[in-house]
Simulated assay, not measured.
Amino acid sequence: MNQLGDTRLRTWTLRFMALLAADTQDQLVWLGERELETKDVIEEVEILCRVPEGLAERGVFEHGDLHDLRAIGRRLGEIDSTCRVDLWGNALTTDPAWEDIRSHARRFLLTSLGDWRQPLPRPVRPHTGDH
């Protein structure tokens, strides 16, 4: 991949990790009125946890930085299928898996950037079906 593509993937990884690392209340504020399904968030994070492996091969991330991403991927795999059908906002407050994921995301950011407190990504506007 080219350097610009690697930079974008690194930025995407760090922004999503910032969202996962945020306090629950900050995550809920970020969600606002959006109704994200937990299964969709899990799918996105599972991809996110695989992408940095290739980036580490190209020197964008250190191999040691990936330990917590792998742990997040394992923890996501342990989330029961019945917990995946709920809205993510509800899961954040009821499923202890998200607290574990938060801890790993914080360690990843601390290792990668020196501080887990990072600006949250801009929320994506809900799709309205209008063009």
Rank of each mutant, 00 (worst) to 15 (best):
R58H: 15
F108M: 06
G89W: 00
P126N: 07
T94C: 04
R125T: 09
L69Y: 06
R102I: 06
E78T: 12
T24N: 09
L120Q: 08
F61Q: 06
D40Y: 10
E44I: 10
E44K: 11
D86C: 01
R8C: 02
D68L: 07
R75M: 07
W98P: 01
E33K: 15
Q118P: 00
D115I: 03
E44G: 05
R58Q: 15
E78N: 07
T11R: 09
D65E: 15
V45F: 09
D26N: 06
D68Q: 14
W30R: 03
P96T: 08
R10F: 03
G114H: 05
D80E: 13
P119M: 13
R75W: 02
E37N: 03
S112V: 15
L87E: 12
R125L: 13
E44A: 13
R122C: 01
E44Y: 01
R34I: 04
E78V: 08
G77Y: 14
E57G: 01
V85A: 04
R117S: 06
V51H: 01
P121F: 11
L66H: 04
W88A: 05
L48S: 12
Q3H: 09
H127N: 07
T7V: 07
T128Y: 06
T82G: 02
R10P: 02
R125A: 15
T128H: 14
A71K: 08
L4W: 06
T128E: 08
R102A: 07
W88K: 03
M1A: 15
P52Y: 07
R34V: 02
W88N: 05
R125S: 10
C83R: 12
D40C: 04
A22D: 04
P96Q: 02
V51K: 04
L92R: 10
L120Y: 09
L9H: 10
L113N: 06
A105L: 01
G59H: 13
Q118M: 08
D80C: 03
G59P: 07
D6I: 00
R122Y: 11
R74D: 08
Q27A: 14
P121S: 12
G32H: 13
N2L: 13
V51M: 08
T13L: 06
E37C: 06
T7Q: 14
D95R: 02
L66P: 06
E99D: 10
A97I: 04
E35G: 02
R117G: 00
W30G: 01
D6R: 14
R122K: 10
L76A: 10
Q3V: 11
G54M: 03
V45Y: 07
V124H: 09
R102E: 07
P123K: 11
G73K: 05
L92I: 01
C83P: 00
L48G: 14
V41M: 13
F16R: 15
A71W: 09
I47L: 14
H67S: 12
A71Y: 02
R70E: 14
V45A: 08
W30P: 01
C83L: 02
E46W: 10
C83K: 04
E43R: 15
G32M: 07
